[in-house]
Design a protein around this nucleic acid. Structure first.
Lengths: 117, 117
DNA sequence: GTATAGAGTGAGAATCACTATCGATAGTGC
DNA sequence: GCACTATCGATAGTGATTCTCACTCTATAC
């Protein structure tokens, strides 16, 4: 399961993971895929986000707070950390009287490999 | 339709908008709500995001690029602009060889009114 | 004033991702 | 070997969204 996630370059949808497992000869059920993915997401071993189509996308991640730079063409994702944004988000929240502030940041673009053709 | 969106303090789900319209005596169909919302989103008159439950949330927005500071308790949303993040996102994209870079940023927290009780 | 074409609408069916349930099976301790 | 438990896969169910289609309303031509 984790191996399958590792094999993917970027984000993979639950549907895609299920299909890939079946294709590789593992007759795993939809329910199991969702169960395992939810557990992994709970324990912070994978990142879970919703895409525009409403599908849940999972990705093998290093633990800890970070953001992603995602290629819109191939789905490859680069992990990004920045004290700048963390500080900015905190400040914006505080300036508006918000408490318990957290944030989501995603950067999209076309990676050099895809841009090259 | 726009008036109904304007009446909401923050984000409103398609379901909620539909319910509110029906409640206010406008026997509008689900299909129409989604049609209009999609059109409005296409023309940039409303912002469309997906929440964790996979529902589409719509919000009346000022046109142009900006981000939101959203109260997790009441849903109230404050529009936020910052050259800092724009610059940072561009830089991160460029540093990793990405082109056509854009980004999504959402900040969450509890607003002072909700924190007060 | 009447007929017709066209766009827009609402109700309900269909679809899709996801979740809950349930019976079957494998594993464990006695 | 037997009873119990945990886990799994299949399947039915759920809820949001989209599609379909018949209907209505408006504008235009006659």
């Amino acid at each position: 399961m984790l191996a399958t996630l590792d094999a993917a370059p970027g984000f993979a949808s639950a549907q895609a993971i299920h299909a890939r497992l079946r294709a590789s000869g593992t007759p795993v059920g939809m329910a199991t895929v969702y169960r395992v993915l939810r557990d992994l997401a709970d324990t912070g071993q994978v990142d879970m986000v919703r895409d525009d189509a409403g599908e849940q996308q999972y990705r093998r991640c290093t633990p800890g707070h970070h953001h992603h730079l995602v290629c819109v063409a191939c789905g490859r994702a680069v992990e990004v950390e920045s004290a700048t944004v963390e500080r900015w988000a905190d400040e914006v929240g505080r300036a508006n009287g918000f408490t318990g502030v957290h944030h989501d940041v995603e950067i999209f673009g076309t990676c050099s490999r895809c841009a090259a053709g």
